[in-house]
């Protein structure tokens, strides 16, 4: 039990510390692919430290919601990220929140961010919130269908149990899982505001979605929101790694060597998925806002197809 708590605590700290590094690494690789030298992989840490020390400038008619929303967004995203097994399964909190809760916690974060976008009453915030909620209205059901597929496959909605089931015998290539993986990747791209859905680097008004929502934020508020955004990216990458490539992950309570292997393999998986994400991003152009629903509908349909195939193939005993 002690080990379970330790692992959980380590995980909570790890996601917080590692998230900016993942953003830094993806930015670095992206720069290299674009034949630029790029900033150091540690630049996001420096940005966060710089922002967090600056005074916050808020708009004149902003309310208390505007000032509390960053912390709520940060807390819910942090909690969700801490619930996804990274290097070890069997976390203490696994029994408290399953993967449906993780999806819903991200929903809470988005809800508050969208409200914060509307708080000042400028057009940028409004356009960002409105588009973000439109994307979410397709991305969230797609995500839940992916969850259904995986949960039906593993007979559980808890990530620790799912991960253990996936490493176990009798799991081979499965068409439903493949469909779920594609859907999950599409959802991850949309939820993390990556190209082709949104561009994290843009500051051109008409193309912003996520950036438009947080346009009024500055100083420590902005730092907290940026930290939450990088944790969300880490969460999705960890989720894909935990469900679809659970190899090497240790179980809480095993020996130090197993922990080292677990941590090493997790870092490797992060690097590999980060690299693939950037290659995909560099190879594709951003799409128009109203093409995004079609893109997300693909994920929704793939998820539905995956679930229906499972429902058909599982003949009850």
């Amino acid at each position: 039990m002690i080990r379970g708590w330790h692992t959980q605590l380590a995980q909570i700290v790890l996601v917080l510390l590692l998230a900016p590094l993942l953003s830094g690494v993806t930015r670095k690789i992206k720069s290299r692919l674009l034949r630029r030298r790029g900033t150091s992989v540690f630049q996001p840490y420096r940005d966060l430290l710089k922002l967090i020390r600056k005074e916050a400038v808020v708009a004149e008619n902003s309310s208390w919601l505007f000032r509390t929303a960053p912390y709520i967004v940060f807390a819910t995203t942090w909690l969700a990220a801490a619930l996804v097994p990274t290097f070890a399964t069997g976390l203490t909190f696994s029994a408290a929140a399953d993967v449906i809760v993780i999806v819903a916690l991200l929903g809470t974060a988005r809800f508050f961010l969208a409200l914060a976008g509307l708080d000042v009453g400028t057009s940028f915030g409004g356009i960002g919130s409105s588009r973000e909620m439109m994307f979410a209205s397709l991305a969230e059901p797609a995500m839940l269908l992916v969850v259904f597929t995986v949960a039906l496959f593993a007979g559980s909605t808890q990530l620790s149990s799912i991960s253990a089931h996936m490493t176990g015998p009798g799991v081979g290539l499965n068409i439903s899982l493949a469909l779920a993986l594609i859907a999950l990747i599409i959802v991850s791209i949309a939820e993390n505001a990556r190209v082709p859905v949104d561009n994290p680097a843009t500051h051109l008004e008409l193309t912003m979605v996520h950036e438009a929502m947080i346009l009024e934020y500055s100083g420590r508020h902005l730092a907290v929101i940026e930290a939450a955004a990088s944790m969300k990216l880490l969460l999705y990458v960890s989720l894909i790694a935990c469900i679809f490539t659970p190899w090497g992950t240790t179980v809480a309570g095993s020996g130090a060597v197993a922990y080292a292997i677990g941590l090493g393999s997790y870092l490797l998986k992060l690097a590999a998925f980060g690299f693939m994400l950037v290659v995909f991003e560099t190879a594709i152009a951003k799409m128009r806002v109203f093409r995004v629903p079609e893109f997300l509908s693909v994920a929704l349909m793939l998820g539905l197809l995956g679930v229906i195939l499972l429902f058909i193939s599982r003949v009850p005993q």
Binding site: A56, S62, T122, F124, E216, R220, A223
Partner: peptide, 15 residues
Amino acid sequence: VRRFASHGLRRSPAW
């Protein structure tokens, strides 16, 4: 954040 980093707050017109 407020204890160790910054707690200043300034109000200004929206962008």
